[in-house]
Simulated scan of single mutants.
Amino acid sequence: MKETIKHQTVETKEREIIFTRVFNAPRKLVFETYSTCEHLINWWGPRSWPLSYCQIDFKPGGTWHYCMSGPNDGDESWGLAKFKKIDEPEKIIYQDYFSDKDGNINTEMPAFDTVITFDSVDSKTKITVISKVGSKEEVEKLVEMGMIEGFTETWDRLEEHLEDIQES
């Protein structure tokens, strides 16, 4: 299934969820917003689930451990990404997991093989995120959990962050 939501395209396939969106910023800057906590803390996660913890070692073999805190006291969603390949400013490949605060992987939740590409389009940047999981049922579970809405809002926040940093 393929649909357009706001300024992005979302496609679900057998084992994949694919997001595509064009941002009004140069590729180098857009890539940089994915590489440091100083940037990620400003845009990662839906508005009601912003980052409250971020530790990143942005290199192949490095990790990104983070927490999104929800609107109710004690609501937390921890994640752990393990970087496999980074081709600056074109591509990031990582494995993405739900985890706990100590970085232990939650094996009851779907894990993602994620590929993010950054393509220059005139003076803008097209990002494509392909998240591949183990089964069609896992794709359905993630969609039911609100992944598409959450990701859309996250990218709305990225768009705002890019506007802010280009104006300053």
Rank of each mutant, 00 (worst) to 15 (best):
G61W: 07
G61V: 01
G62M: 12
G62R: 13
T63R: 10
H65W: 04
H65A: 03
Y66P: 01
Y66K: 02
C67F: 01
M68P: 05
M68T: 03
M68V: 03
S69F: 00
S69Q: 08
S69G: 13
S69M: 01
S69D: 14
G70W: 00
P71D: 04
N72C: 00
D73I: 10
G74R: 01
G74T: 04
G74S: 07
D75F: 01
D75Y: 00
E76T: 13
S77A: 12
S77F: 09
S77E: 10
W78P: 03
W78L: 07
G79K: 06
L80I: 05
L80M: 09
K82L: 04
K82T: 08
F83K: 01
F83M: 00
F83D: 01
F83A: 02
K84Q: 14
K85G: 06
K85P: 04
I86P: 01
I86W: 13
D87T: 15
D87M: 13
D87V: 15
E88Q: 09
E88G: 00
E88R: 12
E88M: 05
K91E: 13
K91T: 12
K91I: 12
K91F: 03
I92T: 02
I92F: 13
I92N: 06
I92A: 07
I92V: 12
Y94R: 08
Y94K: 10
Q95V: 06
Q95F: 06
Q95K: 11
D96V: 01
Y97R: 10
Y97T: 08
Y97F: 15
F98S: 08
F98I: 02
F98A: 08
S99W: 14
S99V: 05
D100W: 09
K101N: 14
K101L: 11
K101E: 15
K101D: 13
D102Q: 14
D102I: 04
D102W: 03
G103D: 12
G103S: 13
G103Q: 13
N104L: 11
I105C: 04
N106Y: 12
T107W: 01
T107K: 07
M109F: 15
M109G: 05
M109S: 12
P110S: 10
A111D: 09
A111M: 02
F112R: 13
T114W: 09
I116P: 03
I116L: 15
T117P: 04
D119L: 05
S120D: 14
S120C: 06
S120W: 00
V121R: 09
V121F: 00
V121Y: 00
D122L: 06
D122G: 02
K124W: 04
K124F: 06
K124L: 11
T125Q: 06
T125S: 07
K126S: 11
K126V: 03
K126C: 08
I127V: 14
I127L: 15
T128D: 08
T128C: 09
V129E: 15
I130Q: 10
I130K: 12
I130A: 03
I130T: 13
I130N: 13
